[in-house]
């Protein structure tokens, strides 16, 4: 469309709402997911026992975030058809008609390559390789392969979201360790109860989209059982983290309180049936979902506090047992 055609009578009065703005391209990067990526990657990097120059640390976290955003854009490109039929995702830039699928693909591929190369140049190539693997895992293994094929999609796909603290740690140390693997496991085990709680109260969305969520394929009773089992395993793992060099007394206190609340929430969900849920409009499931958000941020926040205290020489340390 040229400027001359814009001024022609047939275009007068049109709102041009479908013309993409900068924010629409930014929305392709899933900024809300990116906040989690930034936070957990930053904690992984700062908790590592190797000091990193602040500007290099900033760049490393930025490139990890851009890599996460790139995989979000590629996910939106591939999933545009199911995003259009789900109420939660129908206003994303591609189903809303603001950005074309090809543009999302180009942006995703360009930013993927950019983020991996610049993370390698800023920190090290091990971290860059891990970021490249994460993007591949999220886009190809989760989005293209597992999401529409197996009800365990959330479990395996959750691994992609669990990599950022490990990449942050690798950016600082150039490798992996027990601490970074446990940080990975924390997010990995947290993802299924978090998403299954969501699936319990926005059930119709996944039904319409034909995504084989556990609630759709195995029923809601089985989903409640799974939430309880995963929460119990998560609690054991989260408390164990206190006895590594990344943990400590402050982390232990936070972990004990939050895991007690989380297990109680999972137990409450397990005890309920559909009639009870309909009666109170999924109050317990919604409360558990909100708690799950606080849960992850508080655990990583506590690891960050332990790292800062340790740097200031105030760390009491339960660490090194694991």
């Amino acid at each position: 469309m040229s400027d001359a055609s814009i001024n022609s009578p047939e275009f007068q009065g049109q709102a041009f709402e479908s013309e993409a703005q900068f924010g629409d391209y930014f929305a392709l990067l899933k900024p809300r997911v990116m906040t989690l990526v930034v936070f957990t990657a930053a904690v992984g990097l700062l908790a590592a026992p190797v000091a990193v120059h602040p500007f290099v640390a900033f760049c490393a976290i930025l490139f990890i975030a851009v890599g996460g955003g790139a995989s979000g854009a590629l996910n939106m490109w591939w999933d545009a058809d199911i995003d259009a039929v789900m109420k939660r995702t129908a206003r994303r830039p591609i189903p809303a008609g603001k950005v074309t699928g090809d543009e999302a693909l180009a942006l995703g591929l360009a930013l993927s390559g950019f983020s991996v190369v610049f993370l390698g140049l800023a920190s090290n190539w091990f971290a860059a390789g891990l970021l490249a693997f994460t993007i591949f895992f999220y886009v190809v293994v989760y989005t293209m392969w597992l999401k529409r094929w197996t009800p365990q999609n959330i479990v395996i796909g959750g691994a992609a979201g669990a990599f950022p603290p490990m990449i942050g740690w690798a950016a600082a140390t150039g490798g992996i360790s027990v601490e970074s693997v446990l940080m990975f496991c924390l997010t990995f085990m947290w993802t299924p109860p978090h998403f299954w709680a969501l699936a319990l109260f926005i059930r119709k969305d996944y039904d319409h989209a034909g995504v084989p969520m556990l609630t759709v394929t195995h029923g809601r009773r089985v989903t409640r059982n799974h939430i309880l089992v995963y929460t119990l395993l998560l609690a054991a793992l989260a408390v164990a983290m206190a006895f590594t060099t990344a943990g400590g007394p402050f982390y232990l206190a936070v972990a004990v309180v939050l895991n007690a609340m989380f297990v109680k929430g999972a137990w409450d969900i397990w005890r309920r049936d559909e009639e009870m849920c309909e009666a109170d409009n999924f109050r317990v499931e919604k409360k558990f979902f909100k708690l799950s958000l606080l849960y992850l941020f508080a655990h990583f926040g506590a690891i960050l506090v332990e790292a800062v205290m340790s740097r200031l020489g105030m760390g009491l340390g339960l660490g090194g047992w694991i």
Binding site: F16, E19, Q21, F22
Partner: peptide
């Protein structure tokens, strides 16, 4: 209006 939208995009 399209000029405003494109200006925002270019500025970003």
């Amino acid at each position: 209006e399209i000029h405003n939208r494109r200006f925002g995009r270019n500025l970003g």
